[in-house]
Computed example of a mutant assay.
Amino acid sequence: MSWQNIVLVGFMGTGKSTVGLTLEEALKWKLIDVDQAIVEREGLSIPDIFSTRGEAAFRAIESEVLETIMARSEQIVATGGGAVLAERNRESMSRNGLVVALKASAETIVARVSGDTNRPLLQGNPAEFVPILLEKRKGAYDFADVEIDTDLLTAQEIAGLIVQQMKTFQR
């Protein structure tokens, strides 16, 4: 099977954007950041969408944008951490891509996302909220074709593993 897209899923701070940039360079495919596509479409930042319209409205927009993106091919799609929460999104990703779940420990995630004001679900104390959100989303990424722990790997090493999986993995 030749893969039409690579879809990167995982909790915030697991490396989706960083690995996506590395894959874009390696494969010469276009990197699509779903959150950035939402910002461009709505003309509002993610925190502004959350604060003015609420999380449910954001998730509906996210599903629409993701479905449009997944209709195309030869892309690396970096999803938002919660995109996997909707069955519709999981089906869309699986139908048209090799889905790669990037994982990291709570400690690694906290170190990576602390101080990032573009993460509305982490306003306050990330060290307190990350473990709670990780527990809530436990199993949410299990539908992925491939799982990679990013704690001790560089973006280049992770991208190399993904390219290798593209060649060898069959559904």
Rank of each mutant, 00 (worst) to 15 (best):
Met1Ala: 11
Trp3Gly: 02
Gln4Thr: 12
Val7Arg: 06
Leu8Asn: 05
Val9Ser: 08
Gly10Arg: 10
Phe11Arg: 14
Met12Gln: 12
Gly13Lys: 11
Gly13His: 10
Val19Cys: 05
Gly20Cys: 02
Leu21Cys: 02
Glu25Gly: 13
Trp29Glu: 14
Leu31His: 11
Ile32Pro: 05
Asp33Asn: 10
Val34Gly: 06
Gln36Arg: 13
Gln36Ala: 14
Glu40Met: 04
Arg41Leu: 14
Gly43Leu: 10
Ile46Ala: 10
Pro47Ser: 12
Arg53Lys: 15
Arg53Pro: 00
Phe58Tyr: 08
Phe58Trp: 04
Phe58Asn: 02
Glu64Ser: 06
Val65Ala: 01
Ile69Cys: 08
Ser73Tyr: 00
Gln75Asn: 14
Gln75Ile: 04
Thr79Gly: 09
Gly80Phe: 03
Ala83Met: 11
Ala86Glu: 09
Glu87Trp: 00
Asn89Asp: 05
Ser92Ile: 01
Ser94Asp: 01
Arg95Glu: 13
Asn96Pro: 00
Asn96Gln: 13
Gly97Gln: 03
Ser105Ala: 06
Ala106Asn: 07
Glu107Asn: 13
Asn118Ser: 15
Arg119Asp: 03
Asn125Glu: 12
Phe129Met: 15
Val130Ile: 15
Leu134Glu: 01
Glu135Thr: 11
Lys136Trp: 06
Gly139Phe: 03
Gly139Lys: 01
Phe143Val: 03
Ala144Phe: 05
Asp145Trp: 08
Asp145Ile: 04
Val146Thr: 08
Glu147Gly: 07
Asp149Trp: 03
Thr150Val: 07
Asp151Ala: 13
Leu153Asn: 05
Ala155Met: 05
Leu161Phe: 08
Ile162Phe: 04
Lys167Met: 11
Thr168Val: 14
Phe169Val: 13
